[in-house]
Amino acid sequence: MAEINIKNVAKQFGKTHALHSIDMTIKHQEFVVLLGASGCGKTTLLRIIAGLETATSGEVWIGDKRVDGLAPKDRGIAMVFQNYAVFPHLTVYENIAFGLRMAKLSESEVERRVQRTASLMHIEQLLKRYSGQLSGGQRQRVAVSRALAMEPDVILMDEPLSNLDALLRMEMRAELKSVLAESNTTTIYVTHDQVEAMSMADRIAIMDQGQIVQADSPVEIYRNPAAHFVGSFIGNPPMNFLSANNAGNGQWLVGNTTIAGPQSDKPILEFAIRPEDIRVGEGSMTVEVRLLEPLGSHTLLACRLGDTPFRVIVDSDRAVKVGETLAIDPIAERIRWFDPDTQLAL
């Protein structure tokens, strides 16, 4: 069993707090993505789990073994690095075999595992080449093969696809997901790309300023963001946020419309709705269309509600003109409310 337990892990670099007391449990064979903007601490957390960085305080457990005092090689992990770190002086074969030889496996076992993972990643024909003779995508495959060949309990991936071009990234995303699902490992995957996170993860941990803001399934994170930050970070375009004034009895004044919301004594709450969760052409809210972005499957409207930017997604067949005033109706069960003081969902 390779359940990972992160207990109260904090990291300081000098006076900067890179991580504030992280607590997290990653289940056996779970695929967890650490998602956040650069500098949020996600890579630091991954490196602490890997043993390449030492936590200032806290504990890391893998299975029933406390590993934060152990060397990386004694933790039962394998890692895929952002720049692949495929050794340039070794052939692809020797790269994949590197960890196996260090573990002193028999030559036949090394051979078997290299062949198996190479064919899994479709690089059998590259085994004799050097890294300098490979494309970025091929190097990526070598790096993944090298990790899989270890048959580790845990695979750590640090932005493994960020150096690939868009098309290749999409292809590798699907491939990695299926390969990792078959390998029965627990995976922690760091990325700043929310599409990657949404499409691959069993669970996403959103990080911001050294803290995990929310850790949930992709759909849950999308539908029910636990904090303003999550709503504004996830989704392209992100959620619309509007200020709502308390009109009493659970009624809230948003723009010029009264909307039913939570019972609260707060004078102001934050009303939030995703751009696609809006019916257009009905309702009593009005927005002014400022810009059209036709994206094929749908059209993105950049609008204004008073002074506040407000985005609406409509079907691309719908004729909309810039400068037009649209009547809109936010779908009631998709509306979310945030406390402006704590930034958390109600």
């Binding site: 090689k73 050794f87 002086h89 590197f98 260090m102």
Partner: peptide, 24 residues
């Protein structure tokens, strides 16, 4: 990253020196 990769994949200090640093 080369040294870190070697470390993660099980090479101790001496192996990292002889298998990674020296050849590079």
């Amino acid at each position: 990253e080369y040294n870190e990769a070697a470390e993660v994949f099980g090479a101790g200090r001496w192996k990292r020196f002889t298998k990674v640093t020296l050849p590079l």
